[in-house]
Write a protein that binds this DNA or RNA. Structure first.
Lengths: 104, 104
DNA sequence: TAATCATATGAAAACTTATTCATATATTTA
DNA sequence: TAAATATATGAATAAGTTTTCATATGATTA
């Protein structure tokens, strides 16, 4: 792991997920891929905000896009997200009782 | 995983690691536990800044503290950090060539 | 117990990131 | 091809986070 400088790339990785709007989008996409309009409706977020956030998620490899006519279908990178979420769930159950009680 | 709301607790988790100073501290502690003064020397960071950041890391269960007289020895929660870093490394190698090229 | 050393803390200032707004682009349909 | 629909983008503002500074607290040593 020392092959990468921990700061820098890691900061970008974590920063991409350190945002409630993006997390909500990520969570939504766990139930299946969606286009931008569908994401807007499901989340209640503004279209340009969704696009900005999807762009960031895509740039960091957390979601993929596919052109479908005038639509763009976004899907989750399950390969990363699934184990990541499992890992964090385990962490939180064990170490973050305070956070879970207070903040969900 | 739907037992937790993805936003909220997750945002706090990722937010805690989305910072270069904290990542540098985390990386340092991978080589063994250290007290605050040692962390300051090794990182070049200001003492109060280190304390603030350690507090956040500790609150989120990423480091542990042990009182040793007037010192406080901080150690890493390897159980979480190790698999986390492995996961992200794998992710970055596969999906984030751009980031790694540009930013390390 | 006074002085010193180690660490913590609150509030302000500096910095970063997110959201919004206006508008542009691309695709499709009438 | 004009109008409508879907999405993207840049720049400005708003919101949030980090760092700094001054100082407080707690333990130890002289």
């Amino acid at each position: 792991m020392d092959s990468y400088k921990l700061p820098g790339a890691y900061k970008l990785f974590f920063g991409t997920l350190a945002n409630d709007s993006r997390l909500k989008i990520v969570n939504l996409l766990r139930h299946g891929s969606k286009n931008v309009t569908e994401i807007c409706h499901a989340t209640g977020f503004e279209q340009s905000m969704v696009s900005h956030n999807l762009k960031m998620l895509e740039y960091h490899g957390m979601v993929f896009v596919a052109k479908k006519g005038k639509f763009r279908q976004y899907s989750l990178n399950e390969k990363t997200i699934k184990p990541l979420v499992e890992l964090i769930d385990a962490h939180m159950k064990q170490y973050c009782c305070k956070i879970l009680e207070g903040k969900r």
